[in-house]
Design a protein around this nucleic acid. Structure first.
Lengths: 94, 94
DNA sequence: CGTACATTTAGACGTTTAGCTAATTATCTA
DNA sequence: TAGATAATTAGCTAAACGTCTAAATGTACG
């Protein structure tokens, strides 16, 4: 969870995930979609990779990045536990 | 989403949310549950408050903190969109 | 083999962050 | 109103972060 939330705590990285939602992209395609340098994107991709949010596979000269959502499910479950506990005992107001 | 993910990107703050899952707590109760100083916890609570993850209500000398999950639902939805898009078109592997 | 292309690594720089101690504010009660 | 208690604010420091430029790596192809 530590690496996951760290990875999600950046607008560019969240946008990269959105970009990979429907189609895998090469590092270059991702880099061109943003207004930062390639090395910056490369660094973001490294952080996403460490958090297991994306996978990278080399294909000749290109490296294709793909979304990996398994670790996201864990985060959703943690949040749902907070939400559900709250619904079950909705403060002492009533 | 910016403030939300920022708030979630800290183990102590996530633990505070877990602590508030079933029962509201005063700032003091929260502070005593952790091995950091009161000012540090106060700072964490401020960040959680800004992210709208908790609400604070003064009751005499005490300030009671309660979980607010509405903003969490938004994050869950964003993650579910990523997960579902991935299920619908699960890479080009097949 | 050497050049071009895709991407990453290295190193520097300014900003943000989490933690601390000390001081301050707010509230209750004797 | 003075003192005690609950909690925050202020100011500091060390570490982590995001971004940049420059250099390096890996791969393809004439």
């Amino acid at each position: 969870m530590k690496l996951l939330f760290k990875a999600l705590n950046d607008p560019t990285r969240r946008a990269i995930l959105d970009l990979l939602k429907h189609e895998d992209q090469t590092a270059g395609e991702i880099a061109e979609a943003f207004d930062v340098t390639w090395p910056s994107i490369s660094h973001h991709l490294e952080i996403l990779k460490r958090a297991d949010l994306v996978t990278a596979t080399r294909n000749g000269r290109y490296i294709h990045y793909a979304l990996n959502t398994t670790v996201l499910e864990e985060a959703v479950q943690w949040m749902m536990a907070l939400i559900n506990a709250d619904i079950e005992s909705p403060h002492d107001d009533d």
